[in-house]
Simulated scan of single mutants.
Amino acid sequence: MSNSMEDILNQIRDGKLDVEQGMDKLRDLPFQDIGHTKIDHHRRLRNGFPEVVYGAGKSPEQVADIFMHMHTRNNVLVTRASKEMAEHIRSLFPDVKYNSMANTLTYVENKITYSKGTVAIITAGTSDLSVAEEAKVTCEILGSHATIISDIGVAGIHRLFDRIDEIRKATVLIVIAGMEGALSSVIGGLVHQPLIAVPTSVGYGANFSGLSALLGMLTSCASGVTVVNIDNGFGAACAACKITRLIE
């Protein structure tokens, strides 16, 4: 049996497949091979989010080629986009937005439907803002309202208590910290919401480019703290958005 989308849809129309059987087949189809990249157009159908382009390591020309094939079907997010890449893409697609703090490129083709849940993105220091911005941009294009609460780390813990009521109103928390990564444990002991901790590479030598924060978060005394990889604001945002979608 042919695996093309057209054949599957024709079989549904002709009654050879019921709708449920057709959906099962369509979940794994199709991808588009453009030589250097195989674009997964049906990722949204399988897991709720379209494919996101990881810009690091790709040339501006490669990302532009991917953009050309993606932008008419789905909203597009490129993470870890360099300034050079942004300038090249925007010369071809003027409606693309570049966030220089987040290092992201976004293009909205389809109207974004927002979930009822909200995400609070909390940073220990101003130096963590690039990761926070990446998380915020990701939340917004995936359909979750997000706000950033910055520079309330444990070195001045009174700043945290000044914002705790606001923090407790959010559906999901993303807590971003470098150095020893203690902020996620402190907040984890004060709130009931799901908490996703993001270690950052911010810190002095013994921080080992984020390893100390990662290990601190993984060994958190606060129960229920979930940890993503170092500087992975994108991954934290994806997890948060899946949680907010459960809110009715």
Score class of each variant (00 low, 15 high):
V96D: 03
V96Y: 02
L77N: 02
E133C: 12
N99I: 01
A155N: 12
A170H: 02
T138H: 07
T171W: 00
V131N: 03
A124T: 05
K97Y: 05
T147K: 14
D151K: 01
A170W: 00
I141S: 06
M85R: 03
E87I: 11
S144W: 07
A146K: 04
N110A: 10
E133Q: 15
G117C: 11
A146E: 07
T138G: 09
Y98Q: 04
K97L: 12
I167Q: 00
N75K: 09
A102E: 05
K111F: 08
T171S: 08
S82M: 03
V96Q: 04
G117W: 07
T113M: 14
E166N: 05
Y107Q: 11
V76Q: 02
A135C: 11
A135E: 09
I141R: 06
S130C: 12
G153P: 05
K136F: 06
I89E: 06
I122W: 01
T126L: 13
Y107K: 08
K111E: 15
T147R: 13
D162S: 14
D162V: 09
E87A: 14
L129I: 15
E166H: 00
G117L: 09
D151C: 02
N103G: 10
L105Y: 09
V119Q: 05
A146M: 08
R73E: 14
S100M: 09
A102N: 05
A146P: 04
V76W: 01
V76E: 03
G153A: 10
K97S: 08
A146T: 02
S150R: 09
S100N: 12
I112S: 12
K83N: 12
A132L: 06
E87Y: 07
L160G: 08
E166I: 03
I89F: 04
T138A: 10
G153F: 02
